[in-house]
Design a protein around this nucleic acid. Sequence first.
DNA 1: AAATTAAGTGTAAAAACAACATTAATAAGT
DNA 2: ACTTATTAATGTTGTTTTTACACTTAATTT
Lengths: 229, 229
Amino acid sequence: MLNSYSSADKVLLAVDCIIFGFDHEGLKILLIKRDFEPEKGKWSLIGGFLKRDEVLDNAAIRILNTYTGLNDIYMEQLYAYSEIDRDPVERTISVSYYALINIENHNAELIKNYHAQWFSIAEAPHLIFDHNEMVQNAIKRLRYRTSIKPIGFELLPEKFTMRQLLELYEAILSKELDKRNFISKINSLEILNKLEEKDMQSSRKGSYLYTFNKEKYEEKLLNDFVLNL
Amino acid sequence: MLNSYSSADKVLLAVDCIIFGFDHEGLKILLIKRDFEPEKGKWSLIGGFLKRDEVLDNAAIRILNTYTGLNDIYMEQLYAYSEIDRDPVERTISVSYYALINIENHNAELIKNYHAQWFSIAEAPHLIFDHNEMVQNAIKRLRYRTSIKPIGFELLPEKFTMRQLLELYEAILSKELDKRNFISKINSLEILNKLEEKDMQSSRKGSYLYTFNKEKYEEKLLNDFVLNL
DNA sequence: AAATTAAGTGTAAAAACAACATTAATAAGT
DNA sequence: ACTTATTAATGTTGTTTTTACACTTAATTT
């Protein structure tokens, strides 16, 4: 019985994570100052190497945890980048993953201890290797995702206002949306619970708070829909 | 200067190609009888290993050519599969690619000499490893692609009838489409040239032949649209 | 001449979408 | 206490898009 494909070349396989967050300032990504050569000290996506006995999905989870302390983040695979010299040290193919997380829930302190930092999408620094390209592709995918799956559960605080949800969508799509049309389209998805409670921060009148209806939200995650905003 | 990431594990990286074709019988995929162990003699996607100095896209092209003689086929990357034991011989991560080709143009003889064979999607045999899963995901992607890019140039003969185009879409989407609505939606894309010439095979009256308007078609390939069929 | 076959063509009703402005609730200021 | 300022909440209408649907035409075969 065969136990190796002896003639084939082996390569390093890396994983890079594009972590999106959202707060009152807008859409952000989480970056780290690279702590090893080459390009040590430059800004980079959160990345690392796949281990021999590890599935890519798990490598992404492990690597994210190593550099940020973040746990239980569901990431989705995007694309494998394989340009010969993308990493100048050694031939490395990198598989990108992306996720959406809530900045506030995920403890800024923790992230900071690990030297990770949030950057507004627009103001993010130049990144090493082909990481800027990875980010651009991830944004594209995130926009597409927005049109077929609900979004926000991972990004907003538990209770949020319609305005916050609207601003999230506007940030992702980077375009203005009509408030009234937005509300009726979102409502037609039936994934929100309107609370009695109001948020009094934002205005004198106060605005109603909402939560996601977890069951319906997850059902919509499985069964794609079409949402034109 | 660093010249290796010495502690990281290297793995085999494979590429598997899902080649879709279309003829009067419907949508098909191209498979080969595997010519090496393990699973020698079983049906498989067209696959092989990435070489050290090769980009994934090129590996896909080379591998497809090796097993089928096919040339100049544009393939698109889909997904990296990394289950630990997906290949029982040795840890192998496989990146899937897919393409659409015209069965008739691409010489059945040639393919046959290489022991590749077309199978109707519905009647395809059980495949080795996780190849069936790869095919399912590719079909899903193909359906999505259909809604944002024109399709058919790669799959149909140069001159074709509206019915053939309709049947192609029906095969990909696996649902019936309304003939009149289909025609007006396709016409609104303005990618077809209607010829004077008629095809007299299919009916007594004969049906007009069309060609794709290459410039417009390629423009639409770049600038996605929305097509609801 | 009649029958058969697939091709070709248009309309009307329903649904979805886009654009738009006023009133309501409350806190702050006088 | 009244006025002012601020943001929230809400619904309608015209337009566009989508869907559903059936008859006539051209040519061959019988």
